[in-house]
Simulated assay, not measured.
Amino acid sequence: MNGKRDRQPTIIDVARLSGVSKTTVARVLSGIGAVHAETRRRVEEAVQQSGYERNHLAFGLRTGRSRTLGLVIPDISNPFWADLARGAQDKAEAEKRSLLIFSSDWDAERERRHLQVLRQARVDGIILNPATDDSGLLRQTEAPVVVIGSSGERFPEYSSVRSDVAQGVRLALDHLIAAGHRHIGLVNGRDRRVARTRFVTEAQAHWQRHGFDASALPMDEGDYTVESGQAAMTRLVEREGGRMTAVFAANDMMAVGAILAARAAGLACPRDISIMGMDGVEAGSFTDPGLTTVDKPRYDMGVEATRLLLAEIDGAGDIVRTVLPCRVVERASVAAPRRSVSPARKKSA
Rank of each mutant, 00 (worst) to 15 (best):
R67D: 05
N78R: 02
E142Q: 15
L17H: 08
D300V: 12
I12E: 15
G33N: 08
D75V: 13
V123E: 11
R54W: 01
Q49K: 15
S151Q: 14
A335G: 13
I319H: 09
V169T: 13
Q208G: 15
L71F: 06
M233W: 03
N55S: 06
G152F: 06
L176D: 06
A305S: 13
L29K: 13
A121M: 12
G51Y: 01
V47D: 08
V294C: 05
A255Q: 13
E202M: 03
S21R: 10
R40G: 03
A46M: 04
R67P: 09
R112Y: 01
T23W: 01
H36N: 14
E44R: 08
S151L: 07
V161W: 00
E142V: 03
I177C: 05
W106L: 07
I313R: 07
V72T: 11
G266A: 08
N251K: 05
V145Q: 04
E109F: 06
G257I: 06
L186E: 09
Y224F: 15
V20R: 07
R338Y: 07
F155Q: 00
L71A: 13
S150E: 12
V256A: 11
G315T: 15
H36V: 01
V25Q: 08
A46Q: 07
S151C: 08
A268W: 04
T322S: 15
G60W: 01
I313E: 03
Q230W: 04
L137S: 14
G315D: 12
F102Q: 12
D272P: 11
A332Y: 00
K346R: 14
S333W: 00
A335P: 09
A15K: 04
R271Y: 02
S50V: 05
R67T: 10
D90M: 03
S333F: 00
S150C: 04
G290I: 00
E157H: 05
S342G: 11
V329C: 02
A349N: 11
H210D: 05
H175P: 08
Q48E: 13
C326V: 02
D223S: 07
E53I: 10
I11M: 15
S77V: 14
I184K: 10
V341C: 10
Q49N: 11
I101Y: 02
N188W: 03
A108D: 05
G229L: 06
E227N: 08
V200Q: 15
G189S: 04
M219T: 11
G280E: 02
T306W: 00
G317R: 12
A265C: 10
G211N: 06
H56Y: 10
L69T: 09
D252C: 01
